[in-house]
Amino acid sequence: MEPLFNYFILSLALLSVGIYGLIAKRNAIRLLFSVEIIINAAIINFVAFARYSETPIVTGQTFAIFAIALAAAEAAVGLAIIVQAFRLNNDIDVLELKKLRG
């Protein structure tokens, strides 16, 4: 099998792509894409480090399942917020959503 470092680098690259999306994109749905990519990178790390630990454990997979379930909840709430913002403002450009600005 591959050494652990390859999985780590893949996870790090996915995390970097997600950070780039969070900084550079203005569309709210693309920000949600970025958050999902970052969560996937974290889950890869959970599973890989559990597989390569010295004693056999499954805690990484257990917490990966919890993380996937929470990501599903987060996507549902995020998409509901996006639909609501679109209905109120007719736009989902995050630079145009200024109603909470003090």
């Binding site: 050494p3 652990l4 470092f5 597989r51 056999p56 499954v58």
Partner: peptide
């Protein structure tokens, strides 16, 4: 980068 081999048992 020194961790090469996974443990033997598959969960």
């Amino acid at each position: 980068s020194n961790i090469i081999t996974p443990n033997s048992s598959i969960p």
